[in-house]
Design a protein around this nucleic acid. Sequence first.
DNA 1: TTCAAATTGTTATATTATTACAAAAACAAG
DNA 2: CTTGTTTTTGTAATAATATAACAATTTGAA
Lengths: 153, 153
Amino acid sequence: MYGRHEHDSCISDAMVAADDICKARGLRFTELRRHVLELVWENHGAVKAYDLLEKLDKDYSAKPPTVYRALEFLQENGLVHKINSLNAYVGCSHPLKHTDCFFLICSNCNEVQECCGSDVAKAVRNMVAGQGFAHNQTTLEIEGVCQECQLEG
Amino acid sequence: MYGRHEHDSCISDAMVAADDICKARGLRFTELRRHVLELVWENHGAVKAYDLLEKLDKDYSAKPPTVYRALEFLQENGLVHKINSLNAYVGCSHPLKHTDCFFLICSNCNEVQECCGSDVAKAVRNMVAGQGFAHNQTTLEIEGVCQECQLEG
DNA sequence: TTCAAATTGTTATATTATTACAAAAACAAG
DNA sequence: CTTGTTTTTGTAATAATATAACAATTTGAA
């Protein structure tokens, strides 16, 4: 999905954005939280909590709450999203405008692309408003095969 | 969300539809599977697998695989959907046209409404096609408060 | 009636996540 | 600084969700 790219800059962009957000909000972006976010960003796939735990455990004496608490913090601040259909987590690629996002999940390369603020979101809003439903949180996860993987096919 | 209504007819409609589908497809709609579907349909909320298990266990010596296998069968045949954001299951309210469905989930009354084939689905298709993504399975779950609960509120 | 396939029973275990409480670190007020 | 408070982290235990593996049974077809 992302093919070959300078992934280091994905990581560093994400870390800088996280720094900025935490600073702006007066939050403590601790060593541990930073480390978890880096691990989440190791690639563009969704990562399982217990895989994070294993990686963390090399440096920290990590137990499940260690990683779940860090993930909770990161999710609350829009730096990480949970992919419910996979029970796994991805780094947010645009944490400042993370409303109405959805996810394309390639079942071949296992990468996840986050998409924002499109006609889809608008259609959801309209549909839901038509029902008089006050929506709060939307989970939209689209599983399939990305273009790159189709071409390789 | 559904307010007061003749829920018995929801159940019987669902059972009739399930009978028809299984007959048409030459599937075995066994006592157990039927029983699980009835339990799923006890109300319009999403039900947890282990709650089903407890209820089942009164009549059957049910173990987890008992209920998960029945749910698997029902899901495969579009009679039940899993709500990923809740890890819970709902009966499908229109099992014959269960493509491009999504769910409104009221966090007050805990009921779930299934919606089908709307502009939302169309917007998703367009969006996804624009990315060259071949989509296979869509999870769209909208959490909020239904109109009835807002009015009571 | 026998064979093969599908279903169910059963035990065990894997996976995902939370609770509860203690220790430590960070921070703010005096 | 130092005291008290809040936040974060450590740790053990356990809860909640789900699957694997294999045996027994039932079903349906030849």
